[in-house]
Design a protein around this nucleic acid. Structure first.
Lengths: 340, 340
DNA sequence: GCATTTTTCCGAAACGTTTCGGATGCCGCC
DNA sequence: GGCGGCATCCGAAACGTTTCGGAAAAATGC
């Protein structure tokens, strides 16, 4: 492959000046810069990233360390995330390293190895939990990263998130506005920050309507179809609390809720109102359900582009405060709710 | 981070000797080697891979360039592949770079960029087609790679494959042995090498039973449930060729075939025999169908480990002939076939 | 006891890039 | 004519590793 030295020989310039021309430095004649760029194209020059990385300390590579998806339901999100991130980083000319660990392995140790070998200069963190050890570690080592979500307390890092508090608040308020009092909430696994935010929003909206929060109506679990199905049946069993409305944490849960209510012979909207948060997973659209599902909508796939550019900006040393972005959420009132 | 120079200072040895000790060269006293290793552990030494790569020309990173999966059905295979490869390479201490391209982008150009910037020193090639341009390019540039599958003609490269010819031959022979004459074959998209191999095996088995191949009974398409369903209905329509047996190229197709036959009121085994090749995708097991499906079985997930180690061996300069491996296929005769 | 081999070590160069500090020539200005 | 300022360029060092060629010390052979 052509090197800077080749270019400099070919152009009768010093290696220094060729490097500076290509990297857009100021002290190079615009005319010679044009010559250099032309020659670079002609000789198919590609900078050797190892050499560059060695001197700059930066590798041009970012990474994601994740366990494999557990259930088949998790596949859709996993694929969405992986391919979205990879494609977005590719667009930003950044290499994307994927490291799938087995579930019992310590993610922090893997991050440490990748940093110490100077292989990566930034990370994507997904599924943050409260007091996330990965975030604590990266913060200590002063390595740039971007989080998909937020922590509860101080978010002194780049993140992309949606307002999960508002999501749960809005869904709950919609139901209380229709007169519902006993509202079940099928939430995600405890510990995840968005799950906790949603719980807070839910409780606040209940309180605003003068309703006390009944812990028995709040259920945690993996966000898949099966969870929606089994918890709905448990809730509706004779002798159980039998809510008049159900909030599903995502579309897979909502599908399970629909299945269960149909199996139990309960009519959606007339007997039980259902709302959900819709992250637009492929294969489950709110409009195509019957009756069409009322949702807050925030496409997951629109988060990977921003995530990538936030991390790149963080690598470029932009101040953290400018790298905290919220995705929009829109409310769609459809046909799955009835007035009590 | 600790460097070789730090170690050499700490030990009173030269940088050279420390490097040689750590890399297992012969001309270093076993006692000093032990000392060096101990010190390396103590100072948490991690070699800077950029520096190493710069001098050796090797990066310790391999890559996979793929388009995103098209349908939801493709998700399972994609996840299986990505996480299997990533985990396997991690085990071999090799970094795994994932580059998801958008479908209209030229994969060869991406490979070229990755090679020229010295970012990668080996590739995984999946879904090879006849006259695959990626393989031609990598061969020309003399870059190591491992293929999941084979080409028709000369396979002068590392590969992992199953005997697709034998798979189709065995499934077909099983059916002809039961007296079937009109056997439909729901195969994958044309051009893929395994699709062509299977076609050849199928035709050969038919010929061995004295049956001419009827092109109308051979259908190509994307290997998903919908393809199995629609093609089965087309085959069984009045006025159509109405086979007495159907071979499904994988389990997703088989699920579609089962759906269609049930919808048409045709009994599996009694009215129509069904066999399939089972690559053990999650969520579709041959035993749990009713009636249990007769298959050739070759778990896809068992191919990623071998793929990874084959590529690593290829990087180490092992001769190609030792790097061509075939996965085992076993035949399970279950309850989905009837004698004619 | 001397020559020869073997073992164990080391200095220096190299990989391709960026960057620091300075050099050169040219211009206008007092 | 001397001086400062500007635009444009360059040499050399540095990043951390591997490796080539050789050197010193120890062991062996006669």
């Amino acid at each position: 492959m052509a090197t800077l030295k080749d270019l400099s020989r070919h152009l009768g310039l010093s290696v220094t000046q060729v490097s500076r021309a290509l990297n857009g430095h100021s002290d190079v004649n615009e005319q010679t810069r044009a010559r250099v760029q032309e020659a670079a194209k002609l000789l198919k020059y590609q900078p050797n990233i190892s050499a560059r990385r060695l001197v700059t300390g930066r590798s041009g590579t970012v990474g994601l360390v994740v366990p494999p998806p557990v259930s088949t339901d998790g596949h859709a999100v996993f694929v969405e995330m992986i391919s979205g991130l990879s494609a977005s980083f590719a667009q930003q000319q950044v290499h994307f390293l994927l490291h799938v660990i087995n579930p019992q392995e310590d993610p922090v140790a893997v991050h440490r190895r990748l940093i110490d070998s100077a292989a990566l200069d930034g990370f994507v963190i997904t599924d943050p939990v409260v007091n996330d050890p990965r975030i604590a570690f990266l913060r200590k080592r002063d390595v740039p990263f971007v989080v998909h979500g937020r922590l509860g307390d101080k978010n002194d890092f780049a993140y992309f998130d949606i307002d999960n508090y508002a999501v749960a608040h809005q869904l709950t308020a919609h139901l209380t506005g229709l007169g519902h009092q006993r509202i079940a909430f099928l939430n995600g696994v405890p510990g995840r920050t968005y799950v906790e935010s949603r719980l807070r929003g839910h409780v606040a909206a209940l309180a605003a309507a003068g309703i006390a929060h009944d812990p028995d109506l709040h259920r945690n679990g993996m966000m898949n179809r099966n969870f929606g199905l089994t918890e709905t049946i448990r809730l509706m069993l004779p002798g159980s609390c039998r809510p008049t409305a159900i909030i599903a944490g995502n579309m897979l849960i909502a599908l399970g809720v629909y299945d269960a209510l149909q199996a139990l012979g309960l009519r959606i909207s007339a007997d039980v109102s259902v709302v959900a948060h819709d992250d637009h997973l492929p294969g489950a659209t709110a409009e195509s359900l019957f009756p069409a599902l009322t949702t807050t909508s925030a496409p997951l796939k629109e988060s990977w582009g921003p995530m990538a550019s936030l991390l790149v900006q963080a690598l470029d040393g932009q101040p953290i405060e400018t790298l905290q972005k919220m995705g929009g959420v829109t409310f769609f009132d459809r046909a799955s709710c009835g007035r009590l």
